[in-house]
Design a protein around this nucleic acid. Structure first.
Lengths: 333, 333
DNA sequence: CTGAAAGCGCTTACAG
DNA sequence: CTGAAAGCGCTTACAG
């Protein structure tokens, strides 16, 4: 920048103002600066700018598993909205590891990001607390948390779990299994609550044996389904708390010689892109992904541009939609 | 930091040395500094550090489509290796858009990243050139490029295309379709070359009609497969240049009443995690993803820690492996 | 064993 | 309409 100023015969202040358009500069002067920049191949150093201005134009994206299609999709959308608004995204994949997540939070604070989009691995009040103390705005998605800590954008998981189960019940299923996520995260717990409420409201007994934990991976869906099918009697339908486990469950059923949906119904959750392309196409509860990403990111942008402490955290609750495809059918008599 | 120094009764130089372990500090002094840091909740500002030291401990990750499972998987691995070595990752999803990619390259230069892992959208010599001029080390994966521009880690796509096609030929298929990627990117072109070479070596005629372009998405696989099946006669087998399009192709075949692999064989490419879980499980050419990510990232780390200009770019060529599952079978007479 | 001070490359009041 | 200069929070020769 010094070189540019010298070459254009002006001060660095003027160069800075030309770059940022922060005050009027005479046409010829501006032109001289621009061509000096051009010929020197000048690229501004945003590190220096950040140090001075306190803005890094960077947001942290904390997700539990970046290669899971659901989070991969969300990440892409966040990245996209960030890009459109001039923000870069630091990808913090916690791998469901609290220590790794803690490390990343330290890094984000240290790197002075302007805001954080947070999908927590397990309980992470500490991490949120530290972000809060550092004055970094946070929006939480997909996980319930005390509202003091951040804005929250959330699915009504209880209702969605209820509706998924109800769909199976309407098809005549009476013995319904459930493949859950990690038992300590809120969306999993709430979907299971909805599952139980549906059974109860329709007068079906809740059999603990039929609820098995997975971890949202295909493999865990396969394992859980095998166990369910080994029960006597096995369930005739299964509610998998995400599409990946549903795909695994269908695969496991087929390997046991069962046809889906003829012999067994499976409903998933999320409606990832693959859901409509696999065979059979998945019946699933669709999450309004774009709405979640947009709501959360715009809220974050707003928060980052609000000075002072007059900020009221809010919680936004969105609804899932039942999408009926081919993996569920009326129970055989 | 000034506060910490004051509170501990030492200079900022000493605080810095305690934090970084860059010179010996007397035990009591060190203790005083540490407890001052503790009680003030001090978090170092890495922006300031970067400005001074010229190192940002950040790498840029440029990918064409972060939500495509193949790139999502690679991204996760890069992120992981980066994390283990103290680097953060800025996610730059080009969306196959050259302008967006150019913008991101400017941002990465401006943010002074220490290195870039680059999977290009289309031809991007300009972007690489700019990175080169800024003195930022780059490693290219998955795309061929002039070796002057960067290190390259690449699959032997021609050979892999040949082997995939050969597999179908060995099963007795004589009329084989091919669903390609975007025609301007090197892995797609080379796989198609391998496809043609196999046909030629086995004395089969190459029918241009049977080669249709896709864009690596499920939807494009569906579209291309529909067209192929409308031909007279249709092919009995298809080579899709990635697994997502293969999944789409299988879905399209089923919707036309064809069973895979009974009536039609499909081979994919990549061996994403889903490949073994879908129904039928995909026969595919497995890419050594971990090896690619590791080789490329270690090479990048090495390059970032090499001072001076005595760097020789190198090209690493890896081999794909045929994984036979259920989506291919002997041709019906 | 430790400190005073320069400087990384910007932005931004302040002054004219 | 433009410039001189302070300062963001660190690191690192230099000096003792």
């Amino acid at each position: 920048m010094k070189d540019v100023a010298e070459s254009a015969g002006v001060s660095t202040a003027t160069v800075s103002h030309v770059i940022n358009g922060t005050r009027f500069v005479q046409k010829e002067t501006k032109q001289a600066v621009l061509s000096a920049m051009q010929s020197l191949g000048y690229q501004p150093n945003s590190i220096a700018r950040s140090l001075r201005s306190g803005e890094t134009k960077t947001i942290g994206l904390v997700v539990p598993d970046a290669s899971n299609p659901f989070f991969a999709d969300i990440s892409r959308r966040i990245e996209n909205i960030g890009y459109e608004n001039g923000y870069s995204v630091i990808l913090c994949n916690s791998d469901n590891d609290l220590k790794k997540q803690r490390d990343y939070v330290s890094t984000l604070i240290s790197k002075q990001v302007d805001g954080v989009f947070f999908i927590s691995a397990g309980d992470s009040r500490d991490d949120l607390q530290r972000l809060l103390e550092s004055g970094i705005p946070v929006v939480i998605a997909d996980r319930n948390m005390p509202l003091e800590l951040a804005d929250i954008v959330l699915l009504d998981n209880e209702e969605a779990g209820y509706r998924a189960t109800e769909h199976l019940i309407h098809l005549g299923h009476r013995r319904i299994g459930c493949i859950t996520g990690p038992t300590d995260i809120s969306p999993s717990m709430h979907r299971v609550s909805g599952f139980q409420r549906a059974l109860h409201e329709y007068g079906l007994t809740f059999d603990k044996q039929l609820v098995l934990p997975g971890d949202f991976s295909i493999q865990s869906g396969i394992r859980a389904m095998r166990e369910l099918l080994d029960l006597d009697p096995p369930p005739t339908a299964v509610f998998a708390l995400n599409d990946m486990m549903a795909i695994g469950a269908i695969s496991a059923a087929h390997r046991k010689g069962l046809q889906v949906p003829r012999d067994h119904s499976v409903i998933g959750f999320d409606d990832i892109e693959l859901a409509s392309a696999v065979e059979p196409a998945l019946t699933t509860m669709a999450q309004p992904l774009q709405e979640i990403a947009q709501k959360a990111t715009y809220r974050l942008l707003e928060k980052m541009n609000t000075v002072g402490d007059d900020w009221q955290n809010e919680k936004y609750v969105l609804q899932a939609t039942l999408v009926v495809r081919e993996s569920t059918a009326r129970v055989k008599d």
